[in-house]
Design a protein around this nucleic acid. Sequence first.
DNA 1: TTGCTCCTCACGTCACGTGAGGTGGC
DNA 2: TTGCTCCTCACGTCACGTGAGGTGGC
Lengths: 143, 143
Amino acid sequence: MADRHTRRNDGRRSSDDRAVYVISVAAELAGMHPQTLRIYERKGLLAPQRTAGNSRRYSERDIERLRAIQELTQKAGINLAGVKLIMQMQERLEEMQRRAQRLEQELTYAAVRTRSERDRSEGGQIVPLRSVVVFPWERGSEA
Amino acid sequence: MADRHTRRNDGRRSSDDRAVYVISVAAELAGMHPQTLRIYERKGLLAPQRTAGNSRRYSERDIERLRAIQELTQKAGINLAGVKLIMQMQERLEEMQRRAQRLEQELTYAAVRTRSERDRSEGGQIVPLRSVVVFPWERGSEA
DNA sequence: TTGCTCCTCACGTCACGTGAGGTGGC
DNA sequence: TTGCTCCTCACGTCACGTGAGGTGGC
């Protein structure tokens, strides 16, 4: 839970990206069998770094990804092929969302600019957004 | 590609949405076993209409959905739980794309309007959208 | 009547996680 | 040396598609 991201206290890369855990520790942190992590890698679900001696080294981000895989497989019953595609789509969705957010901000600026130019205020409507996809396992209790 | 949608020549609904195929025909069109269609329905992957006598009736859109399911299961090896979530995400993705497109258009209009305001004022109203789309998987695990 | 529909149950196949077994490097 | 890592192979479990079996309505 600690140091979520971009905690770069001294010019080093984000601590979340540093490959620090050997496979046994990573498996313990994710609550999995070490062999399971090897399977996930072979299936292309994650790609931990390797040491010079060819041993795997997992980052904090890798651990989070492992937990996400666990959610999808155990709680939602999705197989690994599905998890792989879902995670790709998730990245695309997040990218799209950032794009829409940026566009909206620009639009707000444009609106302010227009309003101030004619010194007239007649607020635009606010368009409520549709409810988002709620995954089955996220209904009910939080966290 | 023929009569894709909104072909309402006489007040009827889109031809793609009309429930016209009984299960045996739908299965044949989709290249599946009829029992498979029943399984998909039970798993919540599609919901064909029912006749007064409780028989299933599939629309052209249902057939297309069946083919999409087939792609994901047979070619990609994704199980039904995965297919279900993927299709939900796909709808979200398409919605997001339409939204971004609309925003871009509004932004273009706003730019044009700002420019023309300098000469003469003839403005439509601006509709600022407030974006707070936060997908479940993007929420932080806690505050 | 026939030929469809509805449903449930059973079985074969396959994906996946777990574990054993044997190897090599720090 | 020990305790890890690497890999492959085998097995138990489960999801899924197919089929059989029995029912009912048009």
